[in-house]
Amino acid sequence: MATIDIYDEEKIARLLFVQRAQGIDFSLDLDWSQSIDLKKSFLPLDHNAILFPKASEEQRLVISQFIGLMVAATISELEEVACRLKGPTWENVLRKFPVNPEIHEMGELFYEDEKKHSAGFRRYIDLFAEKVNVDPVDLKVLLPSSDKTLSSKIYHLNSLAGGMAIWWLIAAVEEESILIFDHMRKSRREIDPLYYDLHKAHYEEEIRHKSYASIMLQVNSEFARVPHSIVLRKLDFILAEILNITWTFNQLFKVKNFKKLSSANPFFKILSELEPLLRDQSSLSVIHHLFTTAPYIKNMLHLSEHQHIRHMLERFGAKKIPLHYFKGAS
């Protein structure tokens, strides 16, 4: 990805203009009147159906839909975290290290977009809950959440100390969501149209504003020159990786709550039937698959494997956890 010169106010103004002109209204530009097609998948699966090689066709469909909901919830929650930490991780940084008003305006638009995306994915989850006749609150108990988690608090503390760990997470999640849509494109006909359209709109906006995380990291790199900032710059990505891995595993453990909703709808009944299939595998084998073969999940656990992130790590001299020891065939 071409790097943006943060001092080139004309170029940044131009990018801002394009982002504003091509912005998508998630309420009006998506056809929310179309019902969710429960006969279609949400995300393409590999031949192992994540962790369930012996899953039936019906189970594969449900797995695909549930992983789709998990991805939707992850994007929604992590973009919500970014918005909650706007003050300490963005406003305070640019007040301390102002570069030009265009970067500030671009940031305002970035957060507007993030709020919009978060609300869009949340709306989809609520629609799904309505479709399968469960309370959205009960459904969300099964899905990733970032509200009042330890991770959020640590990101906040990191930003108060002058760290930029949240921006590494933002960069990685944005890259991941772009890759997810690239993957979805190949199976468009099999995917629920509303889910596809939501990801497509998200993808288009992410492509336009994904440079912003890099801009913020560059501002910090250029101007934060005190010794502890230099140390944090080296370690921020490692912190983001650790928090991300622990958060991901914490969210995955929520699958134990499937049984609570098994009587509500066949969808949850099928989900709860997957648990025995998981028990057939050893914990070590499950963890190994999560890190190496499970699509979507392994990418969330290997933030440093994203090409864009690798370039940024090199550019900013940040360290990463040597997770390549866990890499297997994808």
């Binding site: 010169d5 001092y7 007040r95 301390k96 290290f97 102002p98 030009n100 008003p101 250029e222 101007f223």
Partner: peptide, 28 residues
């Protein structure tokens, strides 16, 4: 100029103390 050897770049909190409408632009 961001590499000013003699004067620190003003931050917005500092500028706000002295100017109701102050803008900072940093160049290479």
């Amino acid at each position: 100029g961001k590499d000013d050897a003699f004067l620190n770049i003003p931050n917005l909190d500092e500028v706000d103390q002295f100017y109701a409408t102050g803008t900072v632009r940093v160049l290479d």
